[in-house]
Amino acid sequence: MSDLLTHVLSMYVLSTLAVWQIDWFNRRYVGITMLGAVIPDAAKGLLLTGPEFVVFGIRGSWYALQTIGSAVAFIFAGVLLFQADERPAIVGGLSLGVVTHMFLDLLVIRTDGTAPAYLYPLTWARLPSGDIYLSSDIWPSLIIIGITSIIWYVDRR
């Protein structure tokens, strides 16, 4: 779970900095970007059911939810919950969360040295992993908690 915490707090930091610099990006969108950082982790459903699931008799894989294609589907489904004038900012916020999440996941240590095919359906290519940390490591969360605390404190002043 430290991996999920790192993703969410990273988006808090980046979106709060965006609020300070971008006029049209206001504080309401901070939570949206944090939600976007959680979208690729919908694949964690495999912890409950195993690597596959069945819906209406159709078999699917949880791993497919960790791709750009499924993230785009989630974003376009989620954006329909908002008013039309806010949709561009919502799409931007959710997309920023997803892209940041996937970038951080590229840094995870993998046994074969390559990340999953995150870019599907654009390509099946598996990018090299950064091999910087394990997804179960606590130190990335401790670092981002410290940075988040500083940003939160400065933001409240």
Rank of each mutant, 00 (worst) to 15 (best):
residue 110 R to D: 01
residue 28 R to S: 12
residue 36 G to D: 02
residue 56 F to H: 08
residue 125 A to S: 08
residue 56 F to W: 09
residue 50 G to H: 06
residue 66 Q to G: 13
residue 91 V to C: 11
residue 127 L to N: 02
residue 133 Y to W: 14
residue 48 L to M: 12
residue 86 E to A: 08
residue 73 A to M: 13
residue 61 S to C: 07
residue 142 L to K: 04
residue 137 D to S: 15
residue 42 A to Q: 02
residue 11 M to C: 15
residue 129 S to Q: 03
residue 102 M to F: 14
residue 152 W to R: 09
residue 134 L to K: 09
residue 40 P to L: 00
residue 149 S to P: 00
residue 36 G to I: 02
residue 92 G to F: 10
residue 4 L to T: 12
residue 149 S to Y: 06
residue 88 P to C: 12
residue 129 S to N: 09
residue 148 T to A: 14
residue 56 F to L: 15
residue 52 E to K: 07
residue 77 A to P: 00
residue 137 D to N: 12
residue 82 F to H: 06
residue 70 S to L: 05
residue 36 G to F: 01
residue 105 D to H: 07
residue 18 A to L: 15
residue 9 L to P: 01
residue 117 A to K: 03
residue 151 I to S: 07
residue 118 Y to C: 04
residue 6 T to A: 08
residue 138 I to Y: 09
residue 82 F to I: 03
residue 78 G to F: 08
residue 125 A to D: 05
residue 22 I to Q: 09
residue 75 I to C: 10
residue 12 Y to C: 05
residue 92 G to C: 12
residue 43 A to I: 01
residue 70 S to W: 14
residue 123 T to Q: 08
residue 50 G to R: 07
residue 67 T to L: 04
residue 129 S to T: 11
residue 15 S to I: 06
residue 117 A to Y: 02
residue 10 S to I: 06
residue 7 H to G: 06
residue 59 R to T: 15
residue 152 W to E: 13
residue 1 M to K: 06
residue 31 G to L: 10
residue 140 P to F: 01
residue 48 L to K: 13
residue 70 S to A: 13
residue 91 V to Y: 12
residue 41 D to S: 11
residue 34 M to Y: 03
residue 115 A to L: 02
residue 75 I to S: 10
residue 79 V to H: 01
residue 22 I to N: 09
residue 89 A to V: 00
residue 4 L to S: 11
residue 112 D to G: 06
residue 22 I to C: 13
residue 112 D to S: 08
residue 6 T to V: 07
residue 81 L to Y: 05
residue 35 L to I: 15
residue 124 W to L: 12
residue 105 D to Q: 06
residue 66 Q to W: 02
residue 2 S to F: 11
residue 98 V to A: 06
residue 123 T to S: 15
residue 10 S to G: 09
residue 136 S to C: 05
residue 23 D to E: 14
residue 27 R to V: 15
residue 86 E to R: 08
residue 137 D to H: 11
residue 140 P to V: 02
residue 13 V to M: 10
residue 95 S to I: 00
residue 120 Y to C: 02
residue 69 G to M: 03
residue 94 L to W: 00
residue 147 I to P: 01
residue 61 S to G: 09
residue 14 L to I: 13
residue 105 D to C: 09
residue 35 L to G: 06
residue 3 D to Y: 02
residue 104 L to R: 00
residue 152 W to V: 07
residue 116 P to R: 04
residue 22 I to A: 12
